[in-house]
Simulated assay, not measured.
Amino acid sequence: MSASRPENVHQARLLRLLRDEGPRSRAELGDVVHLSRSKLAVELDRLAELGLVETAGLAASRGGRRSSVVRLAPGLRFVAFDIGATSIDVAVTNGELEVLGHVSEDCDVRQGATVVLDRALDLLGKLRDEGLLPSVHGTGIGVPGPVSFRDGMPVVPPIMPGWDRFPVRDAISQELGCPVRVDNDVNIMALGELHAGLASGVDDFLLVKIGTGIGCGIVAGGAIHRGVSGSAGDIGHIRVDEAGPMCACGNTGCLEAYFGGAALARDATAAARDGSSPQLALLLADRAELTARDVAEAAAAGDAVAVRLVREGGRNVGQVLAGLVSFFNPGLVIVAGGVAGLGHTLLAEIRGVVYRRSPPLATGNLPIVLSELAGQAGVIGAARLISDHVFTDA
């Protein structure tokens, strides 16, 4: 069941304040939104009638009659689907975007839209069975490819066969009976960092996701920059070397062809098979193929080939990132995604290249850091995406 929406810009602003700042007294809310006491009372009373807010006791006195505390209704629920190339994460949050339940499983996005979305809905069913979903007020979805944000569907996604122009938004909206918004998985991670991560309070930053592929969420002026057709930030397909390996996009020498999860698995498996890395050969003996996690394990054990793969990858990412930093002048760069699990060896290489190649004015006060949201950036960001939509005036 879908909930009511705010009816005007004042109600929408009050809801976003309560989402971002938590419960507040009527007096504090009045200070921020600059409404008279009587006008504020009208708007809050209407939001309570709509089932979006409720009163929660009295605030400390500010020298007169004590003001009541207002909070978002505790029954508000947002659903988040973070669909990656090799996994699905599903979460339920409250109105303040606190994660109440989170389940995930391995899943190959190449199985196609119907199969993958059915799996996501099955996972949501587990959370519903736990009593976490009295109602659904909105659903945010991230997918690992270019998205037409206006139409709510992927458009010619290189690693998502069978998804091109599949009506993800409309299909899930019909299934769950609520508003739905769909975006690129990197953009929702950037929103997650903006809401609850290291980028909280930073208006201009880059979120670089290094997973199966490589992408970049661009936040400018506190909002996601998607570009005209939704493909802004597709940095995995910036060319590093014309003579480089073939990429999934059909071009040669792309960053992703050198250093995404798939490229890392390819190079690690080759090193295991040709005997140049005993440690990787040992790991390959136990499984069909190697992953970025195996490279991290081998590098941590001091395997020279694994360490070289990580460093070369970091240098290539740093080379592309240096150009972005010179162009965009961000206040922060966050590195996230499965391959970011390679940790500080990777981070040191990226930092070294960016700090050497970008102008001192751009990097003089530029932190380049690993995400601290422990795999929840995507689901928090998906919830933020749909709450931004629901908490606007209808």
Rank of each mutant, 00 (worst) to 15 (best):
L58F: 14
R351M: 03
I88G: 07
P161Y: 12
P179C: 04
R169A: 04
G138A: 12
A48I: 10
R62C: 08
I238S: 13
E297L: 03
V53W: 04
S387D: 13
M1C: 03
R46E: 15
D183W: 01
G343D: 15
A301W: 00
D234V: 12
L35C: 12
A199W: 00
A263V: 05
R71Y: 01
D129M: 11
S104I: 00
S61Y: 11
A271F: 08
Q376L: 10
T392W: 09
V228F: 15
A196K: 08
R46T: 14
A340W: 04
G233N: 04
F78T: 01
G64N: 11
L324C: 12
E175H: 10
V353A: 07
D151S: 06
P359Y: 14
V79R: 00
A73I: 02
V9I: 12
F78Q: 03
S135F: 02
D164W: 01
T269E: 15
G275Y: 02
I334G: 04
R384P: 02
D118V: 03
G125M: 07
L52W: 03
E28A: 14
D185K: 05
G261S: 06
A362M: 14
R119A: 13
G145T: 09
V310G: 09
L176S: 10
D286K: 06
E21N: 14
R128N: 09
L117W: 01
D393L: 05
I235F: 05
N184H: 14
V90S: 07
A80G: 11
I386H: 03
L280D: 09
R128W: 08
L346V: 13
E21W: 02
